[in-house]
Simulated assay, not measured.
Amino acid sequence: MSDRYISIEGIARRYPKAGGGTTTVFEDLWFSMRKGEFVCVIGHSGCGKTTVLNILNGLDAPDDGAAIVDGKAIEGPSLDRAVIFQGHSLLPWRSVLGNVAYAVAAKHRDWPKAKVTAHAMAFIEKVGLKGSELKKPSELSGGMKQRVGIARALSIEPKMMLMDEPFSALDALTRGTLQDEVRRICLETGQTAFMITHDVDEAIYLADRIVLMTNGPQAMIAEIVENPLPRDRIRTEVHHHRDYYAIRNHLIDFLVVRSKSFRDAIPEGYDRRHPPVVRPSADGPGPDAGRKAA
Results as ranks from 00 to 15, higher is better:
residue 8 I to T: 15
residue 12 A to S: 14
residue 13 R to K: 15
residue 21 G to M: 03
residue 23 T to I: 10
residue 24 T to P: 10
residue 26 F to G: 00
residue 32 S to L: 10
residue 40 C to G: 12
residue 45 S to L: 06
residue 49 K to A: 01
residue 53 L to F: 08
residue 54 N to G: 13
residue 54 N to V: 14
residue 59 L to R: 03
residue 59 L to P: 14
residue 60 D to T: 09
residue 62 P to V: 06
residue 64 D to E: 14
residue 76 G to L: 15
residue 78 S to L: 08
residue 87 G to D: 14
residue 93 W to C: 13
residue 96 V to D: 09
residue 97 L to P: 00
residue 98 G to A: 05
residue 99 N to H: 12
residue 99 N to S: 09
residue 99 N to R: 06
residue 101 A to Q: 03
residue 104 V to H: 01
residue 117 T to D: 00
residue 118 A to D: 01
residue 119 H to P: 04
residue 123 F to A: 07
residue 127 V to K: 01
residue 128 G to D: 12
residue 130 K to W: 04
residue 133 E to Q: 13
residue 138 S to P: 03
residue 139 E to T: 08
residue 139 E to M: 14
residue 141 S to W: 01
residue 148 V to M: 05
residue 149 G to T: 02
residue 153 A to P: 00
residue 154 L to G: 07
residue 155 S to E: 11
residue 156 I to D: 06
residue 156 I to R: 01
residue 157 E to G: 11
residue 160 M to N: 06
residue 162 L to S: 06
residue 165 E to I: 11
residue 169 A to N: 12
residue 170 L to Y: 06
residue 173 L to P: 00
residue 175 R to Y: 04
residue 177 T to L: 11
residue 180 D to Q: 12
residue 181 E to T: 15
residue 181 E to F: 11
residue 184 R to C: 08
residue 184 R to I: 14
residue 195 M to V: 05
residue 198 H to L: 00
residue 199 D to K: 08
residue 201 D to W: 10
residue 202 E to C: 08
residue 227 N to D: 07
residue 229 L to P: 03
residue 232 D to M: 09
residue 232 D to Q: 10
residue 232 D to N: 11
residue 233 R to W: 10
residue 234 I to A: 13
residue 235 R to E: 12
residue 237 E to H: 09
residue 241 H to R: 03
residue 241 H to I: 00
residue 242 R to W: 09
residue 243 D to N: 13
residue 246 A to T: 10
residue 247 I to A: 04
residue 248 R to L: 04
residue 253 D to F: 09
residue 254 F to S: 05
residue 256 V to N: 12
residue 259 S to R: 02
residue 260 K to Q: 13
residue 262 F to S: 00
residue 262 F to I: 00
residue 264 D to S: 13
residue 264 D to K: 04
residue 265 A to K: 04
residue 269 G to E: 07
residue 281 S to I: 06
residue 285 P to H: 05
residue 286 G to F: 12
residue 286 G to Y: 11
residue 288 D to E: 08
residue 290 G to Y: 01
